[in-house]
Structures are given as C-alpha cells and as structure tokens.
Simulated scan of single mutants.
Amino acid sequence: MIGVTTDERQSIRTVTLARPDARNALTLDALEALEAAIADAEEPVIYLTGEGPAFCAGADLNAVADLDGDPDAAVAFAELGQRVARTIEASPAVVVAGIDGPARGGGLELALACDVRVGTPDSTYGEPGVTFGLFGAWGGTVRLPRVLGEGDALEFALSGRSVDAEEALRMGLISRIEDEPRTVAEEIAANAHDALGVLKRRIRDCAGEATKERREAAAFGDLVAAHADDVDALLE
C-alpha cells in the first residue's frame, strides 16, 4: 500500500500512496506503513505522492465503519492519523507533497503537514466529512487555520466544498501549480542539505498544538458515535 524508492543521485526519497483502486484511501496498516516510511528516511528531501488518478481520498470508510460507533476507538484512530501527520511535520527531511487529482479529508490533512504542497492543474481539494456528520481529525482543525487563516478555514471546512488548483493556490493550500510537481522536490534537493534542515526547524518552530489535537480527536470520537449509521449507509 505504501511504495518507497530512493534516488541517491538527487537525494530524494519518494513515498507513494499505492492503492489506486481505492483512490489511495488509508487503512490503519497503511497509516502505520506511511509513518515508518517517513520516520526511516535519511534523505534530505521526501516526495510524497499518490499512484493513479488521485492523491489520497483520506481515511478508508470501511476503517471508519469498523469503529462501530465506539468513541474510544474513534479517538485512537484519530490519534494515529495525527501521529502520522506529526511525523511528517517533524521529519528532519523537507517533505514535498506532489498532488494530482483529489486530495480529500485525511489526504488533504496529511498534505497540510508537508512543508511544501505542489498541485497539478488537475488537482482538487476538499474536506467533505461535514456533509455526512464528521470531519477530518488528523490535525486538520489545527493546521487548516494556520495555513489559510481562520476565515477561509472556517468557510472551506464548514461548506464541505471542493476547490480546484487555481483556487487552492489563491487560498494558500498549495504554493505552486506544476505539470510535474516532483520538479519542485528536485529544486529543493539541489540546495545545501544542512541548510535545508536548519531552515525547516526554524520556520516550523511553534508550540501549543498538542492540546488542540487531543480535543480534536475527542470531538471526532463523539461524532463517529453519533453518525455510525450514516457511515454504514455510504458503503451500501
């Protein structure tokens, strides 16, 4: 489900979400494999992308349905996704998300944890969980306002709408639109590797989000308990 390749010449590790038949939706096992692929990296740059016509549809709905409305299980699921996002954010490597096709829910939240987000002209972005009573709980309520500002974050999350690449660029969800997003990872990897790590640490230096994430996970647990039947209906 997670592919890992290394280009030693360019000093880039490519991590690929490789479940194209399910739009790269993430199961528990895939989340753990993704975490390991990021944590084990020794390269100065990681390029995170998806196989096939989607970047990532977010959490596998079957995995959400398997929570069976149990808020404790839902909190644990949210905390796993948050941990993976924190691993991406805290990686010594610069992590570049190359987004082609849809980035939805948890897929968008993992992209938000990356240092640089580059979309193709065909990329789209959305947090649709609110339409069936949930929301992305992999750190999205922490990072979305940080990236977009509170006003745009509220409108985007509460509407459940999707935006195309041009609007995502205007909002600040992505920093560039490229036919081949990997070229941005290559540009970054061409610079002094020790400087890359120092710059990332200094720009990323912040505190106080752990409490927000715990509250986010708890709120997700409550909603999974309230909307278990709605999730099951989506799978029928």
Rank of each mutant, 00 (worst) to 15 (best):
G3C: 01
G3F: 00
T6D: 12
T16Q: 08
R19E: 14
P20H: 09
D21N: 11
A22C: 12
A25V: 06
A25Y: 07
L31S: 14
A33V: 02
L34S: 03
L34C: 04
A37Y: 08
A39S: 14
D40M: 04
E42H: 13
E43A: 13
V45D: 08
L48D: 04
L48A: 08
L48H: 04
T49S: 13
T49C: 14
A54V: 10
A54N: 07
C56N: 13
A57E: 06
G58P: 00
A59M: 12
L61N: 14
A63P: 00
D66N: 08
D66L: 05
L67M: 11
D70C: 03
P71Y: 04
A73R: 13
A76D: 15
A76T: 05
F77H: 15
A78P: 02
A78T: 01
G81P: 00
I88H: 10
A90G: 09
A90W: 05
V94H: 02
V94T: 09
V96P: 04
A97E: 11
R104F: 04
E109N: 12
L110P: 00
G119A: 09
T120C: 01
G133E: 05
G136M: 14
W138L: 08
G139D: 05
G139Q: 03
R143S: 12
R143Q: 10
L144E: 09
E150R: 12
E155P: 01
E155L: 12
F156Q: 05
A157V: 06
S159T: 14
G160H: 15
R161H: 10
A165H: 07
A168E: 13
M171N: 12
L173W: 05
E178P: 02
P181E: 03
E186F: 13
A190H: 12
A190F: 08
G197I: 05
G197V: 07
R201C: 02
C206E: 14
G208P: 04
G208R: 10
K212Q: 15
R214K: 11
A217Q: 00
G221S: 13
L223E: 13
A225Q: 14
V231P: 01
D232R: 15
L234S: 03
L234N: 02
L235S: 06
L235F: 12
E236F: 06
